[in-house]
Amino acid sequence: MYNELYVPVFAHRGASAYALENSFKAFEKALELGADGIEIDIQLSKEGIPVVYHDPQLSRLVGIKKRVNECTIDELQRFKLGKPWRRLFSSYKIPVFDAVLAWANTHQFPLNIELKSTILDNRGALVQMLQGLIIPKGSHFSSFHYELLEIVKQHMPQYETALITTKKLKWDLLDAYQAIDSVHMHKKYYKPRYLEACVASAKVCRFYAIDGNEKFLTNPHPSVIGWITDFPDKVISMQQRQ
């Protein structure tokens, strides 16, 4: 049983400590471990089709020096994913967003949909993606790019939007970011200054890079509405401690 201070846990790229990031195996593992949702990353193919992949470049998991948006969806679907010494025999493929969305809606498993940099080059594809979009209750959009969240808010104002913070963010002007409802921060920002800035601007927050050992997990600040972690089981267990 969760304690009264329990904060929802989103598995970062799925339960990525236990399976390849942004894969169906990682998503299913997150569900199995009791996560409250998953964080996924959206890039665009050359045609503007949303796919679930973190890096704009394919080098780390595919081993080629091309950008995601330089490849057609057919090319992207043929690539095998994984570390270099495992890639040849890997069964992992880049998921299409529509397939992940269908899976999430079937399980009513909330999504933290992070909009990545390749979308900046094809904003019309984001508008098309949003048209008629149905996502599980508790889902939201996040991005480092405020202009993408403005598009989401313009076309789908009912959905929560979260700005992922950088050093450039002017915290004293946080209330000027009218197209966002929340902020996502690295755990190093779990400090009174930033938490109070959220309160002052009437915004809530989530923290990422959580590993389950943080003392603040058992007594979270009232503005915190989510943890984002590679280890959902550990974070859930820590929160259950009285």
Rank of each mutant, 00 (worst) to 15 (best):
I134Y: 08
V7R: 03
P95C: 05
D41Y: 09
K234F: 11
Q154N: 14
R60W: 07
H184A: 14
A26C: 06
Q77R: 15
V100Q: 04
G37C: 11
P95V: 01
A15V: 02
Q43R: 04
N105Y: 05
L173I: 01
E147C: 06
L115M: 10
M156F: 13
P220H: 05
A99Y: 14
F97D: 03
E70N: 08
E28W: 00
K167A: 14
I40K: 02
E160R: 14
I164W: 01
A125V: 09
S143P: 02
G132M: 13
H145F: 15
E214P: 04
Q240L: 03
Q108T: 13
R123V: 12
G37Q: 09
H140V: 09
T218Y: 04
T106N: 13
F216D: 00
K187R: 14
V152W: 08
K46N: 01
T106R: 14
L120P: 10
S23C: 05
N219M: 02
F10G: 00
G82H: 10
K46V: 02
H12V: 04
L148K: 06
E147K: 07
S16H: 08
E4Y: 12
T106M: 09
R60I: 01
E4Q: 15
Q131T: 11
V7L: 06
S237W: 13
Q43A: 07
H145G: 01
T218P: 01
K29T: 11
N105F: 03
S45W: 10
H186A: 02
M185A: 02
T118I: 10
W171T: 04
K203W: 09
V127R: 10
P192C: 11
M129I: 07
P56C: 05
L115W: 05
I38G: 07
S143Y: 00
K168Y: 14
V199D: 11
Y92A: 00
A102T: 13
F89T: 10
Y53F: 15
I73W: 09
A11D: 03
V204G: 00
S139Q: 06
V96S: 06
I38H: 03
L169N: 12
I42K: 00
N105P: 01
L20Q: 10
D175E: 15
F109K: 04
I42P: 00
P8Q: 08
L33M: 14
G124E: 15
P56H: 11
W171Q: 02
D121K: 15
Q239M: 13
P56V: 12
S117T: 13
S139Y: 09
A99N: 15
C198E: 03
Q128C: 05
I49Y: 14
V51Q: 13
L61H: 11
F24C: 10
S23Y: 12
I236H: 02
R123Y: 04
I94E: 07
E4R: 14
I40G: 00
I210F: 03
E28D: 14
L61T: 06
A15Q: 06
